[in-house]
Amino acid sequence: MKSRALSFLLAFVFWVALTWSLDWQYLLTGVIISLFIAWAVGDILTRNPWKFKQHARYIWAVYYIWVFIWEMVKGNIDGAYRILHPGLPIKPGIVKVKTNLRSDSALTYLANTITLTPGTFTVDVDSENGYLYVHWMNVETEDIDKATEIIIGKYEKILGKIFE
């Protein structure tokens, strides 16, 4: 029930921001559509609504956004350098990475972060055993532990504090 109320609130805020108008017709349409969405798919938003009440998670999320933006800018400059260099300094390969995160949302955000940060992107996720298969543009090591430390060492702790 709490999950449905949260998804109704989210959908309604999104609707108001997109129409950017406070006429009663727009608001009525938004309420009807948000109720329909909350009735149809509301129960898959979250399984543990009590997580939304812990304030420390929001502070870690704000910190994570800044880390993510900085890493993304660095990654793009690195990628642009590798594309424009005449000798194509790439050494590609698919390596395996071990993670301790288990919940679905944490794994999704971890995979998205890996895709948008320097030189790596996720090919497949094995969520039962906690392995990620990562395509690395410039392979430094094939060992699982060292690759884990280099690729996801920074993000794993913060994501664990946000989602687990």
Binding site: K91, P92, G93, I94, V95, Y133, E142
Partner: peptide, 13 residues
């Protein structure tokens, strides 16, 4: 993958 790729653990597993 490209023939100069270093490793492909996904193919192995």
């Amino acid at each position: 993958p490209w023939e100069k790729s270093v490793c492909d653990h996904y193919e192995k597993d």
